[in-house]
Each structure stands twice: as C-alpha cells, then as structure tokens.
Simulated assay, not measured.
Amino acid sequence: MSNFYCEYCGTKSSSISNLTANSCSRHPLGSSKGKHKLYEGSEKTKYSCKYCGTSASAISSLTGNSCSRHPNGSGKGKHAPSL
C-alpha cells in the first residue's frame, strides 16, 4: 500500500483524495487557507530542499523551517522538497 504526502507539511495519507480534501496548516497562503498539495516524488530516507539543499529524514521536518534561499527572500518561505 502506497503512502501519499503533502508537499507543504508532510502529512501522510493512504489515498490522494483524502489528502487533498483537507486543509493544510503550512499552506503558503496561511494556516488552513488552502488544501494539502500532493508531493509527487517517491518515498525516500532523506528529503532535500530544492532551493538550498538542506536535508531531513521527513518532509514534515524539512518544511517546518524557513529557507534562506527561498524565491520570496530569506526567511520568507519554508524549505520545499525536491522530487
């Protein structure tokens, strides 16, 4: 059985429909102002930020911190997992 993850917060779900039907606490527009976004990469032992290369063992750990090289500016966005 596959797991599906939110790109913004790392929430795990057993189905895409359940994942994308719920609000995301780390949505770029603000907490609960948008739905979870499907992470389209594969499950990995380490996830890397596509902007700066920082790595973490879980998407939730990676996306919980600000990225110094985010396109919106330093400290103005969270790390984003690369595919």
Rank of each mutant, 00 (worst) to 15 (best):
Y51R: 01
I59E: 08
G41Q: 06
E43S: 13
L38W: 01
S60G: 03
S42P: 04
A56D: 07
S60E: 14
S57C: 13
G53F: 02
K46I: 14
K44H: 11
L38V: 01
S48P: 13
T63C: 14
S66D: 15
S61K: 11
T54Y: 02
K46S: 12
K46N: 09
E40I: 06
A56P: 06
N65A: 15
T54G: 04
A58M: 15
S60C: 13
L38Q: 01
A56R: 05
S66F: 08
S68Q: 12
S48I: 13
A56L: 03
T63P: 06
C52I: 02
T63E: 09
T54N: 07
T54I: 06
C49A: 02
H36C: 06
G64Q: 01
S57G: 11
H36P: 04
C49N: 04
S60P: 08
S60T: 09
L62Q: 14
K44C: 08
Y47T: 05
K46C: 14
N65M: 09
H36Y: 10
I59K: 02
R69S: 13
A58Q: 12
K44T: 04
K46W: 09
E40Q: 15
A58H: 14
C49V: 03
Y51H: 15
I59T: 09
T63R: 05
S60I: 01
S48D: 09
E43R: 06
G64E: 09
S48C: 09
S68R: 12
S66W: 04
T45M: 11
S42I: 12
G41D: 05
K35D: 15
Y51L: 00
C49L: 00
L38F: 00
T45P: 04
K37C: 11
K50S: 12
S57F: 03
T63Y: 04
T63D: 03
A58R: 14
Y51I: 12
G64L: 02
S55C: 07
E40L: 09
A58V: 10
